[in-house]
Structure formats: C-alpha cells, structure tokens
Design a protein around this nucleic acid. Structure first.
Length: 313
DNA sequence: CGCTGTCAAGGCAAG
DNA sequence: CTTGCCTTGACAGCG
C-alpha cells in the first residue's frame, strides 16, 4: 500500500511554488517563475525519495497560467533538462505521480468557451506528465462538473465531450466523486460508460452519499473493477473531516485511530492519496503506522508471496 | 514588516 | 439578469 500527499511539502525549504497576477504576466517573469517552480518540484521529489514516499500529486500551479494563451512559452522545450532531471528521479525511485485540475475545469459545461478551456487545461496537465516521461499509470483526476438542473443531460454532456479529447489525455483521465453534485454512484455510471477508472473519495461520499446503506469498502470494491491492468494499482482519496469547519473541509492532520480502522477493511493492493493540511507529515505518519502494524506487515508478506506465485505461472 | 484584501477559475443560490 | 459566495495559496499593497 502506497501513501501519498498533494502538491505541497510542509517544512521543506526552497520548495514553494510562485505565481503572479494576470496583469503582471510577461515572458521574462514567466521564465523566472517556471524555472523556480521546477527547482521546487525537484526538491520535493528528492524529499519524497528520502522519506520513501512513492505517491505524489504534482500541483497544477507548476507552470503559471499553463493552460492560458497569455503563456505561450514552450516550457517543455526550454526546460527540457530540468524535466529530464526530475524524470530520472521519479523513474528510478518507482514513484507514481498524478495531477488534479481544480473545480474550475468543467468538461460538461453547457458553455462552449468553458468546455474549450477545460480541454486546454487537460491538455496542459497531460503535457506536464508527458514532459516528465511518466506512463499512463500517472493519472489526471477529474470531477464531472455542474448539474445545470438536469443530471442526466449533464452526464451525457460529460460523456460526449470526453470523446473530443486527445487520445493521450483520455488514457490518463480518471473520474472522482465530489461533495456537491456527482456522488460515487453517478461517477461509477460514467466511468463504466467511458471505460475509465474511478477514484473513490471517502469524505466526499460522507458529505454527498450515494447510498447510505453502503460503506466505504463496498464502493472501493466497485471502483476496483474500473481499474484495468494498464491503469496501474487502484487509487483512492482518503481524508478526515475538520470538526470545526464546513462539511467536507479537510482536517489539519490524519488521526491514526480512524485511519487504522479504515485501512483494516480495505485491500492492501491500493494507492491512498491523503488530502490533509499537514501534507507530507501525515503521509509519513501513516507510512510509519503501516510499517509497525503487524497484521498489515504479515499480509504484505503474504501478498508478495502471492504475486511471486502468479508470476511463476 | 506584517496584516488584509485580492486574485484566478465556474457553478450556483439569492435577489 | 446580476450579484456575491464558495475554495486555495500566494501575490499585492496598505499602514
């Protein structure tokens, strides 16, 4: 079981991501910022390797205005040596990276201009992953979008617009349930229709449940079927509610007791992306817990024996 | 220097 | 139809 964290690394010097406002954009500024951000990414990847973290989400802010026409720098060319350096580190360490466009990338919008921008944004995310030379197990996690008073139509719109995407982008996209519009049942319908993997998010499902009689394990088992061999190990998102904030707000850190109860019930052949304020700190905390957990440790040994047996046949 | 407001994005509820 | 709120981390600018 791999544990990962998203985008930022707490307490690591020289690993921040810089940006600028739209009105201050120019080539010189962008070049400086991109160079700085690639250095930060390199530093973070090094940190992950040193801490045995094999799962990591790369921030969408890596390239400022990466999917906007105001940024026409061929950054994948200009900084090819920086990308190559990071690529080697990712590959040699066996790290799985991913990206996750935000709530403003809406592929199923009724507005053509919004769909166009969503397509461009997905192309940008794919370009980053391609520039890093990672395979299609490195996914782009996407939410479905808005409902527009008609979920059936909005669902069809997503499925139709998905067909417009480049083949390379399609191979990377996985869909995730959200906490406002599309619950895990809705997303499974779409994932199965498009034959693409589904990421289950436990907290989103708590805020926007699909079927209250079903538990996390049930949905994770259904989602497992959507992960084909070439997609890599099934991936889920795990987070805990911040008791003091709005429903769906991520906790400041992962409480190990709850994490333990969750993990006991699920398959160990799984990648778990944490969404939590203290980021890498909770990832290390959870990794340490798994290392010390005797039950898990024994099952991991069982699993590796099983894999070995399978390979022999 | 440190704090508060602003920025980017799109959906959606309220007016 | 228009306005304002939601979210996030970092920029921008005021005192």
């Amino acid at each position: 079981m791999n544990i990962g964290y998203a985008c930022l690394t707490v307490g690591l010097p020289e690993a921040n991501f810089r940006s600028c406002t739209l009105k201050n954009v120019n080539d010189s500024t962008l070049l400086t910022l991109i160079k700085h951000n690639l250095n930060s990414l390199d530093t973070i990847i090094e940190y992950n390797i040193q801490n045995n973290i094999k799962l990591f989400r790369i921030t969408s802010d890596l390239i400022p205005f990466g999917s906007s026409i105001v940024n026409n720098i061929p950054w994948w060319d200009v900084f090819s040596s920086e990308f190559d350096s990071i690529r080697e580190k990712i590959k040699n360490s066996g790290m799985r990276v991913s990206m996750h466009p935000g709530q403003y990338t809406v592929l199923n919008s009724p507005r053509q201009d919004v769909v166009k921008r969503a397509v461009e944004d997905l192309n940008y995310h794919n370009k980053v992953l391609d520039s890093l030379g990672v395979d299609i197990e490195s996914k782009i996690i996407l939410h479905i979008g808005g409902v527009y008073n008609n979920k059936e139509k909005a669902t069809r719109n997503f499925i139709d617009n998905f067909q417009m995407l480049d083949e390379g982008v399609k191979q990377r996209i996985v869909v995730e349930n959200d906490d406002k519009s599309f619950n895990i049942g809705d997303v499974l319908t779409i994932g199965l229709a498009l034959n693409i993997p589904v990421v289950y998010d436990n907290l989103h499902n708590r805020v926007l449940p699909s079927d209250l009689s079903k538990d996390d394990h049930y949905w994770i088992s259904l989602c497992r079927e959507t992960w084909k061999k070439e997609d890599g190990v099934q991936k889920i998102h795990y987070s805990q509610q911040d008791a003091k904030k709005r429903p769906g707000a991520h906790s400041s850190t992962i409480a190990i007791a709850d994490f333990s109860a969750f993990v006991q019930k699920i398959d160990l052949n799984m990648d778990v992306m944490l969404e939590v304020k203290d980021k890498n700190l909770s990832a290390i905390k959870c990794l340490n817990y798994l290392k010390e957990d005797r039950r898990i440790h024994n099952l991991e040994l069982e699993w590796s024996k099983y894999k070995y047996t399978v390979l022999e046949h």
